[in-house]
Design a protein around this nucleic acid. Structure first.
Lengths: 158, 158
DNA sequence: TATTGTTATACTCTATAACTATA
DNA sequence: TATAGTTATAGAGTATAACAATA
């Protein structure tokens, strides 16, 4: 249903576009990525309302839990974030007592990040919420489809 | 790296995770959607730096151009935005002289939105930029893959 | 000089709440 | 009462610039 007009179908196309609600935007891949991200974001926010954690906060919590002592610059690289952006997220997690900074012994410029016991506990809860969130998200795909989708998305951000 | 380990593979898995940089997060679909969205967002911002238009502004410009007289509440529904969110975007486009509000004749509560000539011109330029942006994005997929990707993303946001 | 962390600043998106006007 | 628009407010993500400490 894109361009390439057949005049006879003009009205049909207009009707279909109106039904879809987004007209020719429907053919734009970037547009669908944005809408899908928005939908996932909203469901994530609902799922994590109780824990009061955002997507980025959970990602940082997760990575620090998996790789204790990791530096902020590393987190930024892995999550495609600016240093300043990383700061604000680590600041928030530290303010909540989930994370602590320690100067790296081997490189004085780096801060080695570690979870506190409270952070570990929060991560356990967060992983359970992630599982529920993922189940909601993946419920509309077969296992192969989900795998293919992940692979294609990775091609975009890698 | 906890979860279900096979001791013999622990080191391999750790190595693989380190190579990927994101460890077990790599299996999370929602995570890949967020990263892909971020990559698309950044490229979009670069592409539209000259026009000084954001994704949402372009979407609104596009929809109003396609459907003159559309109401704000309609835009919000189609783009999955709150009324207040829609306001800020329309305000900005109006302040730049791209769009004008007119009270709907049939329903006094509604504002009918129309592009100004400047808005029409901006939309033409924006569509050219969108084409370049889409080409960048789709360059990593075959036509069938891109179609499948759009279809799967639509399942998420519909 | 380059890297890492930090602070300050700013803009956009997003949403909630409360208010007005209209249906 | 319900809907559409409006305004005010706030939190989060993102980024740039400038600075300090370290390599």
């Amino acid at each position: 249903m894109k361009v390439l007009a057949e005049p006879a179908l003009t009205e049909d196309k207009a009707a279909a576009a109106k039904a879809a609600g987004i007209g020719a935007l429907d053919g734009i891949l970037g547009f669908h990525i944005r809408l899908a991200h928005g939908a996932v974001y909203r469901h994530f926010t609902e799922t994590f309302a109780e824990l009061e954690l955002t997507q980025k906060q959970v990602s940082v919590l997760w990575l620090v839990g998996e790789d204790p002592g990791v530096a902020q610059i590393e987190l930024g690289n892995r999550l495609r974030m600016d240093r300043a952006t990383t700061m604000t997220i680590v600041n928030r997690l530290q303010a909540r007592g989930y994370m602590k900074r320690e100067r790296s012994a081997s490189d004085g410029r780096r801060q080695a990040l570690h979870l506190t016991p409270a952070g570990e506990a929060a991560l356990v809860q967060a992983k359970a919420c992630i599982a529920a969130h993922e189940a909601w998200l993946k419920s509309r795909f077969t296992a192969e489809e989900a795998e293919k989708l992940v692979e294609m998305l990775a091609r975009i951000h890698e």
